[in-house]
Nucleic acid binder design. Structure first.
Length: 220
DNA sequence: GCGACAG
DNA sequence: ATCTTGTCGC
C-alpha cells in the first residue's frame, strides 16, 4: 500500500495540474454530487454519485460501489481513503454530468489538494469542493443571511483558498473551494443555487441517501 | 507543550 | 464516518 510520505509526494505532484478558472460548458445540463458512506461495524464503504438535472434538480442517474476501506483516515490525506470507491462509481455512470460537487475540500487544504482536486484531476472534469466543516484556513465577519460569504485565507501565504458560505440564514456555513476547472466565484454561486431548502447542496443529499441504501443492501 | 484536525 | 428522537434554548 502507498505510504504516507508517498501520498504527500503524489499530492504535491498532481496539485500542479489543478485548473482554477472556469473551463465548463456555457450551459450546465447535468450536475452530480458525490459522497462516501461508512458502515458502523464492518470496514465496508460505499462510493455514491448522483446525477441531477441542474434546472429541476430531478434525479437522472445514480451509481454506487461498495468495497472495503484501503487507507486510514488521516486529515490531509483524506482523498486516498475515498477516491477508490468514487472512481469505481464514476466508471459505472452512463450519463456523464457537466460537473461534480464533492462532499469535501478542494483547494482549501494544506497542500492545496483536497479530495475535490484529486477527483477532478483524475477524471479531468470540473469539480467543486463543498465541505461541512473546515480543514484549513481562517475567516471572519461572515454575515447571518443566506448567501453571505467570507473568504477562507490560508495562514501559510495569505491567499484566498475558498469561501465560507451561509446557505441558510442563521445556520452554520459550508466551505466551498475549487476542485478543478472552475473558479471560486462560479463554484460559490452554484453551491448556493443547489441549497434550495437545506444547509447542504441537493446533490450531496441525494448522493448520501442512495449511498446509504447501497451499503445496507450490500451488507445483506 | 497545546490546539486543530475534510469524512 | 458512526452513535440518534425528542428535547432544550434562542
Amino acid at each position: 500500500m502507498i505510504t504516507e510520505e508517498e501520498a504527500i509526494a503524489l499530492q504535491e505532484e498532481l496539485s500542479r495540474a489543478v485548473i482554477l478558472t472556469d473551463q465548463l460548458p456555457a450551459t450546465i445540463n447535468y450536475i452530480a454530487g458525490t459522497d462516501v458512506e461508512y458502515d458502523k461495524d464492518t470496514n465496508l464503504i460505499a462510493g455514491s454519485i448522483a446525477v441531477l438535472d441542474y434546472k429541476t434538480l430531478n434525479v437522472i442517474e445514480v451509481a454506487t460501489h461498495c468495497m472495503e476501506v484501503t487507507f486510514p483516515y488521516i486529515p490531509g490525506l483524506f482523498s486516498f481513503r475515498e477516491m477508490p470507491p468514487l472512481l469505481e462509481a464514476f466508471n459505472k455512470l452512463e450519463v456523464k454530468p457537466d460537473l461534480f460537487v464533492c462532499d469535501a475540500q478542494g483547494m482549501a487544504h494544506p497542500r492545496r489538494f483536497g479530495l475535490a482536486c484529486h477527483f477532478g484531476v483524475s477524471i479531468n472534469y470540473p469539480v467543486i469542493g463543498c465541505g461541512k466543516t473546515k480543514l484549513y484556513g481562517v475567516y471572519e465577519d461572515l454575515g447571518e443571511e443566506r448567501g453571505s460569504v467570507a473568504s477562507l485565507i490560508a495562514p501559510d501565504n495569505g491567499e484566498t483558498i475558498g469561501n465560507a458560505l451561509r446557505t441558510q440564514a442563521g445556520i452554520n456555513p459550508v466551505f466551498v473551494s475549487v476542485g478543478h476547472k472552475i473558479s471560486l466565484a462560479t463554484a460559490t454561486d452554484i453551491v448556493l443555487k443547489l441549497c434550495t431548502q437545506y444547509r447542504l447542496p441537493e446533490t450531496t443529499r441525494v448522493a448520501d441517501h442512495y449511498g446509504r441504501l447501497a451499503l445496507l443492501a450490500y451488507k445483506k
